[in-house]
Amino acid sequence: MNLFRLFGDLSHLASILILLHKIQTTRSCRGISFKTQALYVTVFVARYLDLFYDWVSLYNFSMKVFFISSSIYILYLMKVRFRPTHDPSIDTFRAEYLVGPCVVLALIFNYKFTFPEVLWSFSIFLESVAILPQLFMLQRTGEAETITTHYLAALGAYRALYIPNWIYRYFSEGVVDPIAVIAGLVQTALYVDFFYVYFTKVLQGQKFELPA
């Protein structure tokens, strides 16, 4: 474990806690894409099912359990508990256009042609683009609640922090994971526009608003 990865994981953890806090305190899931959240459940379930047969560490195990359970809980909050506050008419990105290509990519690019390894590759590819319905929604509405932007910033920072972690591991352990690295670069790049507005507006105390 190095600090980049630790802070990356903590940032990921923080993003989910911020999202839960937003939903609970405003009693609303306005501005949150259900499709993106559903894709995250798919990502976590596909990647972390190994927690039942591969023991790594207590840290690794607890994080996996937390990510799977919290993401399912968020779906419950959106679909059942605060259902009236979710507006599917602005959450229009076609998620199947993301899932299909990721299945194909996972079948081609994987470290071993076995079910768990293909599933792992799939989860890495899907994670890299899972934020698109959310960003698309943001683009459509042109503005976001500040708390939602903090959620997105923490989520974007997580994969960005994994990049120095991979560089560090390349030099200290000699390992390189090209699938995760390429997908991680794509994932981080998707946040560039968002981060620009976040740093120039939200962190200066202004509202998150996209130029018309």
């Binding site: 474990m1 990865r5 994981d9 990921h12 190994d50 591969d54 790594v56 560490s57 690794n60 994080m63 996996k64 990510f67 470290y111 792992w120 994994y162 591991r169 390349y170 352990e173 000699g174 390992v175 390189v176 994971d177 090209p178 699938i179 995760a180």
Partner: peptide, 10 residues
């Protein structure tokens, strides 16, 4: 270097 995925990453 070796290529592959470190199993300890999340």
């Amino acid at each position: 270097h070796t290529e592959g995925r470190p199993k300890d990453e999340l």
